[in-house]
Amino acid sequence: MLSLWQTKLRAGLVILSLAAVSIAAGGTAIMHVHAPAMSETTAVWSQEAWPFPIDQWGMGQAFGCSGGPCGAGLHLYLRAKIGFCRCATGVSDDDEIDRVGDTELLGSKYAPLAPGHSVDAGVLTGRARVFKVERAFRSALPVLTVALANRCDAVVATVISDSDVLPKQEQMAVDFLRSDLVQRWADTNTGSN
């Protein structure tokens, strides 16, 4: 158990790191996840470095989960796309997943493997769909794209697995999107008029 001063010190450092990264990322607040304890039944996520080159949507948040129910490894890349959603209907069809999603981060040649389906995560609602991204000299990579809306803003999660994206992995990713951590981040960064 952490003592009171340790807790306060950690809170201060988290705020400092939040501020520093916010400046670097152009004002987008970042989440901070502490080093996890391993669990065999509960997925435990830890923050990773954003592995992609910068583009117009800026740097996102990267998370990893390994061991326990996550198996060999599960990676989730999360970004807010302010003002990119249809305000009235949000992400209501598969075309909108294709349009707002971040599947392109993994490669420019991809195709859906199946129709999408509805997903909700707290204040966020939208759809999820599995794609297959072609890779040179390697087998195609299955990618789960989750596109959610908070009013006119999109929150996009891109999930890859070291093995495959199965319903179990999708459930863990969606549970993570429903976590207080992500919900607070989404509430802080999206949904303004």
């Binding site: 009171l4 001063w5 340790q6 306060k8 010190l9 809170a11 201060g12 450092l13 705020i15 400092l16 939040l18 501020a19 916010s22 400046i23 004002g27």
Partner: peptide, 22 residues
């Protein structure tokens, strides 16, 4: 480190954030 130092760390951090964001 003690509780006073930790409190200062929190206040400094909040002041920094306020300075940047405000």
């Amino acid at each position: 480190m003690n509780l006073l130092w930790a409190n200062k760390a929190v206040l400094m951090a909040l002041a920094f954030v306020a300075g940047v964001c405000g």
